[in-house]
Amino acid sequence: MKFTRRSLLSWLLGGGLLAFLGSLLWGVIRFISPPPELVEGGGGGKQTVIPLANLPAEHSMVVRHQGKLVVVVRQGKDVYALSAACTHLGCIVHWKDKGDPGMKMGDNLHCACHDAFFDLKTGKVMGGPAPLPLQTFPVTITSDQIVIGEA
């Protein structure tokens, strides 16, 4: 294409159009990026505190710790906190609470998606397709609360 005086005008027109579309795209991308206020459990401090009364003995619960899901298990006098996302494909692992019906899984955490088992104390893979152990978190127990994470 020969560059003429007239084609300068169409370059300006086309360039202006592209700049307009670019700014439009920028606005749309800003709009569809969810603001942190609306993201569930976004942010969070270094530590997550759960009142001891919320977690009865021989029961488990899933909480958000530093934005990620963590399964907290109270067994006997001890409390364990492990990453709740199975290392295979990210499903949430489950611990059999006292009185729960269902399969025998002993003291292991179980992932219902593809039958992976993890050791409750260390997160080690006990069976199934999971390639890596679950991450464990340090837990401190005071008289009335459970603190996950280090200060």
Binding site: S10, W11, G14
Partner: peptide, 10 residues
């Protein structure tokens, strides 16, 4: 034609 020419570049 010029406008079309421009868009042929894109």
């Amino acid at each position: 034609r010029e406008i079309i020419n421009f868009f042929s570049l894109t």
